[in-house]
Amino acid sequence: MNPVLLLGQLGRAVLTVMAAFGRVAIFALDALSHMLRPPFYPREFGVALLNIGWLSLPVVGLTAIFTGGALALQIYAGGARFNAEAVVPQIVAIGMVRELGPVLVGLMIAARVTSSIAAEIATMKVTEQIDALVTLSTHPMKYLVAPRVLAALLTVPALVAIGDIIGIAGGYTVAVQNLGFNSAAYLRNTVDFLEMRDIVSSLVKGAAFGTIAAIMGCYYGMNSGRGAQGVGRATKGSVEAAAVLILAANFVLTGVFFSL
């Protein structure tokens, strides 16, 4: 193939990706600015808190408890290869709080909340409800986007904290019930080993992942195509983008907190 054509295609692809990032960044800044400026819609914010926070608790809890239990089993089996079975409490704690808690909660929120926001807003767009909002003197960014992003920003760190605790509890249950660990020693090792930096990083990641999840849902919903196919594409695209961005943000934030 002609190298100039190849370079041209590569350039176009890079420009397309950069333009998409630019559009999302402008949308995110717009959403954040609307969160700070009145009018505010407390009812919509309350509904978003309920949907994103409270109703996500079961899936977050179940994901965390099974992950914590499996992690304890894996660390015990792996540690046994070099007589390090005793590190189970410390590694479960650090693994859940630093990485698995925030990432798994973030991905669960992407699956549950991002898809739901994208589908709902896309359907509103397709059925002219967003145009109706505008004609009723209501800014869609304020009424639809700002309450959801703010609710995700506030509730996902709380979900991560709950996920961390439940995940550690899952590891504790498996270790004490199946692997013969002493209950008091397990808890003491867990508490002693965790640092404030671990907990802060977990909560900051939660806030970042929640914001990403909500913004991607809103962005794809507001920019969906026409008809059922448009809604389907918006929903699929929002979850894919949110999941990838959450994993990328996790890498960056881990670097910021633990490599510097």
């Binding site: 409800q129 145009d131 109706a132 009723l136």
Partner: peptide, 21 residues
């Protein structure tokens, strides 16, 4: 003023465009 401008209008949309929630 956009709000004052839109306050003059009422609109019936083709599909109703009622808010489901």
């Amino acid at each position: 003023d956009r709000d004052a401008f839109l306050a003059k209008f009422g609109m019936l949309f083709q599909g109703g465009a009622l808010f489901d929630s």
